[in-house]
Design a binder for these strands. Structure first.
Lengths: 336, 336
DNA sequence: AAATGTTGCGTAAACGATTGCACCATGACC
DNA sequence: GGTCATGGTGCAATCGTTTACGCAACATTT
């Protein structure tokens, strides 16, 4: 079905050539103000809308940004996509969304499609800390890594300051009087899994804590549940358990409760991410809140700069998180 | 930047014309098996990938499906998008995601862009029960309404059987011995807000319940909280509160707890939707679980049929939900 | 006053595919 | 043996833009 009102029609109505009409609307090249006005009016009268497909074919730019996340069903990524979509739309871009399900092959395939589709830019949450780089580079469009990074990649990246987050958590737990601490995190496949674990490990060194062997799994509820079983099997409970994500903490708390262990009375628990549910569960979860709006803003900012042709060295934005204190680390009111 | 390997290159390598190469790869028209094989091999050798943009411009089909949801940050829609994305990808389509933020104007604008982009189909969660229809029709591509419907629209639709869901809830509450019931739902702006309220209203008629005036707001945690205040202000608590969504129920339970009211000891609470967190909160939420995979499958099925040219009368799929019983309607183990 | 530069606009060639039409064989049929 | 359907292929138009290039008209310089 051919389009009804094309640039051709506008040009005819305005009494100018196709080229002039194009230039008038795009604001490129030399066109007299009077002509611009005439063309603009003709376009408005006819209800002309530029065909993004034809434009993309000719100009090589689609005004689409592709985003790939490990799993959109995870509320953290859903929130992230929400923040990104909004800003992207303000910039006049559409969002092509892909889900890698955490698999490298799928990730590579989806990124290749982004390339085929000539997306102008890509926002990627790399599935694998070490092996996502090649795929990222291969897509052709500028890439910004969000939330996680891939070591091989030279692309810009935006993420939370994991060490600062861990520091906030540990200082808070120290104030609350915790002595023995257990850590439940994710494996080293993702950059955040690694970074949070190492941050915990090195910070805890210089503090008056007694840390038991870390438990590692995935950023999931299931990992939290399994960790709870593990901790219960040890016989004695630690004073506090530090989880590397809110989902882990949820699983942890739920399973502990199922075994009669009450948080925070018997053990303190902290999360990481600050997803909206953290304040709905009981007890409310003390957690490191990520400023998703700031992360989205930085990511879009970086990407837009690259799209505009910026070829300077790779940038990295480490966004500062905040600690949100709730009941899971002590009585709601009683701040010591 | 011109593409490296085009159909032109493939044709040259295979020693055939552009037209034959196109037909051989697309499988359209008459091409000898031998030629097809030659072209296929040449394409594979060169690593040829069809340019979706050029194809879209010429053929009018983009192999993109647009989806518009009220807010992707809502975990219910995030789960829905997750299910849809997966199936869509299996069918060889990409997903263009838009967020209407529940606003009609935004919805219309985004749908218009879908039209411009020549998406092959649209999955829409209408923002407004009565006024989303026009925008839906205007986009040009076939539309399937998911989760909610718009009365004016003649498009296919897929959604949960709200009446059945309410029936499951009410029968369960009757078995649990509840006599007085309060309902907290959403306003009539969305089809689900209306349908669940009317289903509750008419079902409760024929059952031995004493229902107080329904409370109506949005499908949000905030509405649940406000409703809790409202109910508490009435002086006497009902035996049970039926919420029209899990988010409402979460807000309800959290606020009740803040005022010292314990669920289920003091009052039973049920939700609707079956989002993943319903079993993580304490008490676990008894809720009507929507089979999102089935909903996604039906929606994609309908849409693919339309894309293939099916022009039969509008279809409607009412998917049967299931009741998931948890602690919020009684002691975990003790089934009466 | 000739040479030069600037401004405003049109012509036409891309971008990379799909597809209607024409064409040439080949075999079947009367 | 001529006509005709049919299978296989190529030519060229087309989708709706953007943009390199050319050209006329006018302004500016020496």
């Amino acid at each position: 079905m051919p389009r009804d009102v094309t640039l051709h029609a506008v040009a005819a109505a305005a009494g100018v050539s196709l080229a002039t009409a194009s230039r008038a609307l795009a604001g490129t090249g030399r066109v007299s103000p009077a002509t611009i006005e005439t063309v603009r009016r003709a376009a408005a009268d006819l209800g002309y809308r530029v065909d993004p497909i034809a434009r993309a074919l000719r100009a090589g730019s689609s005004r689409i940004v592709g985003m790939i996340v490990p799993v959109i069903g995870n509320p953290f990524f859903a929130q992230l996509v929400d923040a990104v979509e909004q800003r992207l739309h303000e910039e006049g871009f559409e969002l092509l969304l892909a889900d890698s399900h955490g698999e490298l092959a799928e990730e590579a395939r989806r990124l290749a499609v982004f390339g085929d589709r000539r997306v102008d830019g890509i926002l990627a949450v790399p599935a694998d800390r070490r092996r996502s780089g090649v795929a990222l580079a291969g897509a052709g469009a500028p890439v910004v890594q969000v939330d996680r990074t891939s070591e091989g990649s030279t692309a810009d990246s935006v993420g939370v300051d994991n060490e600062m987050g861990m520091r906030l958590v540990l200082e808070h737990l120290r104030e609350r009087g915790a002595r023995s601490i257990a850590y439940v995190g994710a494996d080293d496949v993702t950059s955040n899994g690694l970074a949070r674990s190492t941050a915990f490990g090195s910070l805890v060194e210089g503090m008056p804590f007694e840390a038991s062997a870390p438990i590692r799994g995935e950023f999931s509820v299931a990992t939290g549940m399994a960790a709870a079983d593990d901790i219960l099997a040890r016989g004695t409970l630690p004073d506090a358990v530090v989880a590397a994500s809110d989902l882990i903490a949820f699983g942890l708390v739920a399973r502990l409760r199922a075994h009669g262990v009450v948080v925070p009375r018997d053990v303190l628990v902290t999360g990481f991410d600050g997803i909206p549910f953290a304040d709905l569960v009981s007890p409310g979860l003390t957690t490191v809140a990520q400023p998703l709006d700031a992360i989205a803003a930085d990511a879009i900012g970086f990407l837009m700069a690259r799209i505009r042709g910026d070829t300077s060295a790779a940038r990295r934005s480490l966004v500062a998180p905040t600690l949100v204190v709730r009941e899971s680390t002590g009585p709601a009111e009683a701040s010591r």
